[in-house]
Computed example of a mutant assay.
Amino acid sequence: MGAGKSTIGKILSELTSLPLIDSDTEIEKRTGADISWVFDVEGEEGFRKREEVVIDELTQKKGIILATGGGAVKNSNNRKALSSRGVVVYLKTSVDKQYQRTCRDTRRPLLNNSDPLGTLTRLMAEREPLYMEVADIVVETDQYSAKQIALQIVDKFDELKDM
C-alpha cells in the first residue's frame, strides 16, 4: 500500500504502450462494488478468493501491465501465477513512506483501525519476504519520482530481456 503501483503503472503504460490492468479495479467491476464493501461483506478471506480468480485470469494475458493489491502475494497460487507468467516488479517502499502516503485515505480497509502505522509495520514483516521471493525486479521508491521509477523499471526490464 502506498508504494505507487497505480501511478507508476499508468506511467509505464504510457512509456510502453501496454495496457494497465489493476486487479482491484477488475474485482470492483465484477462485483459492482468497491473493495471496502467487498471486505465489509465478505471479509478479507472472501476478497482474497475473488483476487485469486482474477489474478489467475489476468496473468494468462500477454502484453499487459498488471497492478495487484499489496496482499496478493500472501496466496501461494497468486505467487506462482505471477512469477511463472510474467516479470514481477516489487516497488519497495519504507513503512514510514507508506504511512505518509496512505494516512488520509479512508478507502483502505486494512488501515481502518486505531493503529494504521502498526498495521503497516506488521503487513511489511509478513509480506516483504514473499515480495522478494517472486520479484524479478526490485525498485526502491522512497527517493524517486514516479516517472524516474518507471524509467528504472523499463531499463531493468530491457536488461532482463538481453540476458
Rank of each mutant, 00 (worst) to 15 (best):
T25V: 10
S36W: 00
F47S: 01
V53W: 01
R122L: 12
A72S: 11
R104G: 15
L12D: 02
T59Q: 06
T106P: 04
G43R: 14
E126Q: 14
E140Q: 14
G118N: 13
T68Q: 07
Y144M: 07
R127L: 12
R30C: 03
K10Q: 14
G118I: 09
R30G: 11
S114T: 14
S23G: 06
V95H: 05
Y131Q: 10
V134A: 06
D24W: 04
E57P: 03
F47C: 01
L91C: 14
C103E: 13
P19Y: 01
D40P: 00
L110W: 07
G9A: 09
R107C: 05
L18E: 08
S13N: 09
E140G: 11
T16P: 12
P129W: 10
F47K: 01
S114P: 02
I35D: 01
Y131K: 09
G4W: 08
D158F: 00
G43F: 13
T106V: 13
L151H: 07
T25F: 04
K61Y: 14
S145L: 05
I8S: 01
S145Y: 06
V95N: 06
V38I: 15
F47G: 03
D158M: 07
L15K: 11
L130N: 11
P116N: 03
K10H: 13
D142E: 11
I64D: 09
Y131E: 07
G4H: 05
A81E: 12
A125T: 11
V88W: 09
P109S: 01
D105V: 04
S94W: 06
N112M: 12
G63T: 06
I35R: 03
G46T: 06
L82W: 05
V54G: 08
K62G: 06
S145H: 09
V54T: 07
M163T: 05
I137L: 07
S94N: 10
E126A: 08
A72Q: 04
K61M: 15
K156Y: 07
D136K: 02
I55P: 04
D155N: 15
C103Q: 14
D96L: 11
V73Y: 00
A150Y: 01
S23Y: 02
Q98I: 10
E26L: 09
K29N: 14
G118L: 12
I21T: 04
L58P: 05
R122A: 13
L58H: 11
Y144E: 11
P109A: 09
E28P: 08
A146Y: 00
V73K: 02
L111P: 08
D24G: 10
G43T: 14
G46I: 03
I65T: 02
A67S: 15
L18D: 03
G71E: 08
K10F: 04
A146D: 04
A150Q: 05
N113I: 02
G9R: 06
R85K: 15
S23F: 03
V154C: 12
V54M: 09
T31P: 00
